[in-house]
Amino acid sequence: MTEENQNEGLTEDEKALLSEILSEDVSDLSEFGESRRNFLKQLTMAGGGILAFELFGGQELLASPATQPFIESIENAVTLSFKVNGAKKSLSLDSRMTLLDTLRERLQLTGSKKGCDHGQCGACTVLVDGKRVLSCLTLAASCSNKSVTTIEGLAKDGELHPMQAAFLKHDGFQCGYCTPGQICSAVSLLSEAKDGEVSYVTANVQTSKGAVSLSEEEIRERMSGNICRCGAYPNIVDAIREVHTGKGVAQNWQFVDDNQASNTSDLPKNDNK
């Protein structure tokens, strides 16, 4: 296995973390005679070894029934080859598996969230061949040869995707559970608008030509498939407007400064502005 292959699917942060966890022990181990496969299996079962498992091509181990640590047998198995965040994946799975469960349970990509599992919340939104879809209602088997992008695949070369950065700046979340879906959806929304796709609130679908400029009403309508139970909607709209227009939208919150943090009497009170 080439070096490049080994690191497929890992972010820079994960790679750094991994080299810290594993240090020199790994190469030592294989020389000690303990089979690497066995070692990985133990590490995985111990719960802490997911990253290592990925590094050494965990999917290939999983795909060969003899070495599957937790799957005894697969009913109506289908073989799926597709791309996830640019990396080729090939695995054998139960025909019932949704794309969401495959990402989360088989590929350790837990960024995509399971909110309702019935198409009603948008938390599981990912991009398939560049289009936003609901991974909870997508059968994994139907993704053969397709290319999937999840929230984990949006950052490039250690830089957040502009939409991720805008969500941070505008505090476009509270608990964060809906956020991966919101961001994937928002990224797709911008390319749809650029491609001239109209919406139910577009004034005239007959005469609308070229890229659609997104008013707040347009953004809200186009994002309606992503529910936020915490109600972070105004900030989400601000974040999207900022990336869409390329112009800064004023941030409506600030961190406390050191002074405020150390001096509680500085905190705003009703009688003291």
């Binding site: 109209v198 186009r222 498939g225």
Partner: peptide
């Protein structure tokens, strides 16, 4: 027809 389709479901669902 365009308006009726766009009145239904969400962008994600209409893509599927």
């Amino acid at each position: 027809l365009t308006q009726s389709i766009l009145a239904g479901a969400s962008a994600q669902i209409r893509n599927m």
